[in-house]
Amino acid sequence: MAETGTTAAGAQGPRKAQSGPVVFRGGGFRPADHRGIGLLVLIMLIGVVELGTRQGWISPLTLPRPSDVFQTLVEFTQSGQLVLNLAPSISRLIIGSALGIAAGIGVGLLIGLFSVIRAGLVPVVAAIFPIPKIALLPLFVIWFGIDEGSKYALIAFGTFTPTVVATYGAVDNVDRTLIRMGQSFGLSWISIVRKIVLPGAMPGILSGLRISLAIGIILLVAAEMLGAEYGIGAYILQAGALYDLERLFAGVLILSVLGILVNAGVSLVEKRLLRWRV
């Protein structure tokens, strides 16, 4: 009722002249930097769980006590197990996604630059994009062996398709007037690609990289769940088989941190490479 009252008064404006400051209504709808809020929410959530498990209104079978998880993590680190499990995981992630991303950028550029290749490959990419790559793991094992080969292949294959799609989309979005400018100054084809198309596509490629690397981490765990002695994925699988929730959560926590670090890494690269962006 109060609302309709004010509108009515507003509509009849001039009858009752009111003076006052102009009401500000331009706020919001703009991303602003709120540092620390994310961390605060996280700490609060953990605090609630800790309190619940201590006071007993969260049963230890539902969720492990955060301090126990932390304890497990400390032991895991001190015993040297962390390095033993993390090192192979990280090398798999780096090698696998480097292969997939390099190939993805290459093929994406070819699709973006040559219409014949686009016509030939876009349907193929569209067909392999939705395949859950985990389902193909047995195939990879046959092709590349049970060792590292199949793990690299799985991660590479999983990061390849999103990179291709992001790259050719980014090439399509490069400002045509810049390309025309390059042609009008008689720049060679290779110069135009190297100096105009590639840097122009970089923002799109980098944001695609974020998604590709997250997919890479997911597939890393999947690959390690099959025949890996060491690795974060293997560690989580063992803990899960024993219903050892503390170790399970410790493993998951490590993956989350890995995800955050990868994301921060991409942001850093973006900041350095895309300083020119408005």
Binding site: T177, M181, S184, F185, K195, I196, M202, W276, R277, V278
Partner: peptide, 14 residues
């Protein structure tokens, strides 16, 4: 034959 464009056509990263 050299162009000057209406929208400048400068590479923003250079």
């Amino acid at each position: 034959l050299t162009y000057i464009f209406q929208d400048f056509a400068l590479l923003p990263w250079r």
